[in-house]
């Protein structure tokens, strides 16, 4: 059951990701990103992290992808007429990808503990409570810093997108 779901979600995620990369039209690419994120959320659930799956969907699918679409509309980008990729860039990209994947396989092959199954968990997973406790106790300061970061980002975006900077 778990194995089947994992294969489905994993394939779904990867294929959608490939769709992002190869799509000529930016709007379609954004839609594939959305699909990929949904698959990712499924994987999160399989990993017993429903809270994060939820947050991912909310923040990424709800906010980030919407923002992408918004900007694409704003800039009124056409689908690219020319070839999407330059041949030299493609060659470099392929080189990097194969090198990366190759070394990844090699490393994972040598990583013996990762080959065993995940240990079983108690039936109830109270991750909302646990994450919340950690977040507001141990990670309180980083949380505040993060809040400040968001504020700074907000102000920065407003400044950047104002037409008259001075």
């Amino acid at each position: 059951m778990g194995s089947l779901l994992f294969n489905v979600f994993a394939l779904f995620t990867l294929i959608a990701a490939v769709g992002v990369v190869v799509n000529k039209n930016a709007v379609n690419a954004a839609m594939f990103l959305l699909l990929s994120l949904v698959g990712m959320a499924g994987l999160f659930v399989l990993l017993d992290a429903p809270l994060l799956a939820f947050v991912l969907l909310l923040v990424y699918a709800g906010a980030v992808v919407a923002l992408f679409l918004f900007i694409i509309m704003l800039l009124d980008l056409k689908a690219e007429n020319r070839r999407v990729v330059a041949p030299t860039a493609l060659a470099g990209g392929v080189l990097v990808i194969f090198g990366f994947s190759g070394s990844l396989f090699k490393i994972l092959q040598g990583f013996a503990p990762g080959k065993s199954l995940f240990p079983p968990l108690p039936t109830t997973v109270e991750d909302v409570k646990r994450v919340g406790m950690l977040l507001f106790q141990e990670y309180n300061l980083p949380l505040q810093i993060m809040a400040t970061l968001l504020l700074v980002a907000t102000v920065g975006v407003i400044v950047l997108s104002k037409r008259e900077l001075r």
């Binding site: 990369v21 399989l46 990209g93």
Partner: peptide, 24 residues
Amino acid sequence: MSLNDYLLVSGLLFAIGFTGVLVR
């Protein structure tokens, strides 16, 4: 499922993303 399966998916996803960064 084992950890390595997830890490493989993660790595492939990273590689696909990186390819996009490189070629698009």
